[in-house]
Design a protein around this nucleic acid. Structure first.
Lengths: 210, 210
DNA sequence: TGTACATCAGTGAACGCGCGTTCACTGATGTAC
DNA sequence: TGTACATCAGTGAACGCGCGTTCACTGATGTAC
């Protein structure tokens, strides 16, 4: 056994751990983390309740692990959008499409973040806040390199980045709630999101000549 | 006994009901509605568990009642801000001050709304969504009468109103989380909120000449 | 005003149930030689 | 390669506990006459 291939024992342990995370995420679609029980999770996975302790200290610990998992995929999506080189209008269209696609692909992850961002478990709230702050920093860094940000203070760029990140989370959870409501409602949400981004983009363009 | 003064019995019942709501709100500062127990609430109030059923069907029912209570005070605050006649910069300053004051005065109400807006109890989520939509409509109505909205479509005005309402909720919960972090952090949040509102206001001013 | 009866907010005991945590254990996997 | 021992992921039984809900009840308040 070398460092890149895990032994059979480690591999099996990882598998069980992932099964616990998957089961937790699934159960969290219909409740909050602070009411999710350890026995519920192990029952779904099909292991003894006590096995849980081989992987997590308690449910809050599992929640923090879910934060990392949930935001990793979002991170990839955001990077892709930021990397694009196109005019403002096109970036807006692509961003809204990317958010819609992300929600369709990872609804449980998005729901978990929206639900627990202000939820009842401190450790999880803090993990989400820290991660979203890193997102904001990353967006700010990308914005700073763009021509429209010439002459902006670092604080102003960060403020705009925060507005974008908040808008992203809002739009994602709007798509999520519309999940069952049909394509009509989804189009309405996408349309509103695009117009809001256009308005913000306009404000950005005129920021210098206030 | 006439219709305006309740009998002793009715008055006592109201008092107990309010005590249950107050206790629930207090207990929800450290957990989510979906994990709050009926017995916890009655224990704090000092009544028998079974007494709960004289007032609410279950905890979700109590939650819906808390939504109405929590948003009533916010409604009053928003109306006051909207009624103001002043230049944009002044309205922004007053709005952010009003939000900060509201959070300082009703922290538990704000926390409840932020937490349960995307929480695990459907009936409560829906009650909050419906109420925030009414807020949006009201803000839109106020915006429509302003000079800057001349030539705007109703849809565009409603889109802007939605942006303001979302920003309000975001800012309120940011103030809340900063609650214990000192005046420094609060000033930073107020400053960011003001700049974001200024940028949105700029976008609004240039919306027509896109 | 006084009396007889109706209402109903709150009681207290009881129920079955699922919870989180502990513990000594088992047996497959890993390691040393 | 084979053997003897160590490790440790997962087991299964047990524990005490608080939960939501039910029920017949009590006694203060309300109503009709």
């Amino acid at each position: 056994m070398n460092s890149s291939t895990l032994g059979v024992r480690q591999a099996q342990k990882q598998k069980t751990r992932q099964a616990l995370l998957d089961a937790g995420l699934r159960l969290l679609e219909e409740q909050s983390l602070s009411s999710l029980g350890l026995r519920e999770v192990t029952r779904v996975v099909g292991v003894a309740p006590a096995a849980f302790y081989r992987h997590f200290r308690d449910m809050a610990d599992l929640g923090v692990a879910l934060v990392e998992e949930s935001l990793a995929s979002l991170h990839v999506m955001i990077r892709a959008v930021l990397a694009e080189q196109a005019d403002a209008e096109e970036v807006i269209d692509r961003s809204v499409e990317a958010v819609a696609a992300h929600v369709a692909l990872h609804p449980a992850h998005v729901r978990f973040i929206a639900r627990e961002r202000h939820g009842g478990v401190r450790a999880v709230r803090e993990a989400i806040a820290a991660e979203l702050e890193r997102f904001g920093d990353e967006v700010a860094q990308a914005l700073a390199t763009q021509e429209e940000s010439h002459g902006w203070s670092a604080e102003d760029v960060r403020m705009l980045a925060g507005l974008y990140v908040d808008h992203l989370v809002m739009t994602a959870s709007a798509f999520l709630e519309a999940g069952g409501a049909g394509a009509e409602e989804e189009r309405r949400i996408a349309d509103t999101a695009r117009r809001q981004l256009r308005l913000i983009s306009l404000g950005r363009r005129h920021w210098r000549d206030r």
